[in-house]
Lab assay of single mutants.
Amino acid sequence: MPVRRGHVAPQNTFLDTIIRKFEGQSRKFIIANARVENCAVIYCNDGFCELCGYSRAEVMQRPCTCDFLHGPRTQRRAAAQIAQALLGAEERKVEIAFYRKDGSCFLCLVDVVPVKNEDGAVIMFILNFEVVMEKDMVGSPAHDTNHRGPPTSWLAPGRAKTFRLKLPALLALTARESSVRSGGAGGAGAPGAVVVDVDLTPAAPSSESLALDEVTAMDNHVAGLGPAEERRALVGPGSPPRSAPGQLPSPRAHSLNPDASGSSCSLARTRSRESCASVRRASSADDIEAMRAGVLPPPPRHASTGAMHPLRSGLLNSTSDSDLVRYRTISKIPQITLNFVDLKGDPFLASPTSDREIIAPKIKERTHNVTEKVTQVLSLGADVLPEYKLQAPRIHRWTILHYSPFKAVWDWLILLLVIYTAVFTPYSAAFLLKETEEGPPATECGYACQPLAVVDLIVDIMFIVDILINFRTTYVNANEEVVSHPGRIAVHYFKGWFLIDMVAAIPFDLLI
């Protein structure tokens, strides 16, 4: 008679799926529990143990900040960024110097990925580790590398530091407007667009060049630039800015003055950032001319202004700041037409079709709590990747769950009947059967004279019903998954307890 339990259901295979997918890609990662103190490590794979030199037993239950890997060259700011990422709910990448158990130093890129439950609360953290440099290539500990984003994938490793954006290309926007319009339909740009040429040739750093990471940081200074100062900065030398009595002219307006920039070969870094931020506020060169004239017309309804409409929906549905990093990277690809469009465009503009998908598509409701890094690593669709929660398995109709209350009560009843059979069957065979043979035949009273025979008949009927119930009862397979398919249940029961239950259900007393 089957006594099969499996009270692990309803099970959740999400954690096993993450481990299996990460292991298949030869990654070095740990999984931490966000619900406990210090976000203790609950799993670390073999790749991480080989990377740091510690065994799994030495890593388990330690804080996922990996303070046991810190050393003299470990930056405090990087460690603080990892700790801050564990307090938030967004994906974050941090470069930090770690030390192995043998004392060797290596520069590592740590990717902190939160995993949320159905309520939107962070319950786990996945920390992925990628070695960037070994100890002989690690720089000085005073050099802070965590304020910069990861290198873009479309640049060669040897040319990542030679990417320079020439400031004269930004200063000569109005001069290039006529050349853009003359391109017409034969050019790649839309009317009114501004073409910015980027020099990728390796050259020595000069005062006129600005690194790509500095251009990325310009967006942080746009908020500090007032509207009046932006307007004066875009007017140009024809209309000098008016300053109040006793007030000095704005240095932001002076930063885009061609006369002032041409007199000296070098520009201050602050002026460069502010000038680029001011130019980015204009949607095209037409807006710059309109600002000089004193009238700013409404933005025209053409394809170039609607190019950012799908980007707005993608940004609203993005799951991490990696989408913004990807957008900034692609927006700086050289030799393309940049349409400086305000994100607050007309909502009635139709979304044009684009061959290049900048932001990841909208994630469906079932995966809105899973970050983009987890979705990318697992390579699963929205119909396959579940949320991290207890999910009731989908069972067929008329199927009994093996952990249901009805099955528990039924098993206790069958257990009592088995005990009765084990006690009274030998007793009936030894004593009652002998008395029946010696006594007179009682054929007239039937079952009324033999109450134990009636009980034995009921017990046999219950055993037959138990066999039928076992054909529709779920079970737990070797992978700790609840199986509810009727065919698989029948095959599993035939290979197991079916023969024993059938022999126990045969009414031998009635056959004798």
Score class of each variant (00 low, 15 high):
L171R: 15
P352S: 10
I123R: 11
L324F: 14
P168T: 06
S178P: 12
R148Q: 07
S263P: 11
Q81Y: 08
R269A: 13
A282L: 12
F348A: 14
V341R: 15
F14W: 14
V295T: 14
A293K: 15
A303L: 12
G192E: 06
V198A: 05
R366V: 11
A293E: 08
L315W: 03
G294L: 12
E177F: 05
V110S: 01
S261D: 12
D286V: 12
A382F: 05
E208N: 09
L212D: 14
R92H: 13
P2S: 06
L15V: 14
Q81W: 05
D346N: 04
L315C: 05
Q81D: 15
S182A: 06
E365D: 13
V195M: 03
G149P: 09
G139L: 13
C49F: 01
L210P: 07
N12S: 07
E90M: 09
R92D: 08
G53S: 01
G6F: 12
V325C: 08
L155C: 11
V195Y: 05
K101R: 13
F163Y: 07
I336L: 10
G192Q: 12
G47E: 06
D136R: 12
V94K: 01
P141K: 15
S55N: 06
L170M: 11
K344E: 12
S207F: 06
S178N: 15
N317I: 09
A40T: 10
G139I: 06
L69K: 01
S351R: 06
P310Y: 13
A303M: 07
V3D: 14
K135A: 08
G192W: 01
P297H: 15
R356E: 15
I359F: 05
T371P: 04
L69T: 01
H70S: 05
A217F: 14
P361R: 15
S318Y: 10
H70Q: 07
F22G: 07
E208R: 06
P240W: 15
P168S: 15
T353C: 10
S209F: 04
V122G: 06
R35T: 09
E37H: 14
H147N: 14
L315G: 12
V36W: 06
V113H: 13
L338S: 14
V138R: 14
A190H: 06
L296F: 11
T174P: 15
V131P: 11
H7F: 08
I330L: 11
R62E: 08
T74D: 01
L87N: 13
R242M: 11
G187M: 06
S261W: 05
P298S: 13
E58W: 09
A285D: 14
M60H: 01
A190D: 15
R292E: 14
P299G: 07
E37G: 14
R301S: 15
A156S: 12
D102W: 01
E372H: 15
S243E: 15
V196L: 09
D119L: 10
G226Q: 06
R76I: 14
Y43R: 01
M308S: 12
Q25I: 07
C66K: 01
T152P: 11
E289C: 07
I359R: 15
S182D: 05
G47C: 01
G88M: 12
R366L: 07
T216A: 10
F129Q: 01
S304G: 08
S304F: 08
V341D: 12
P245A: 12
T65A: 08
I123V: 09
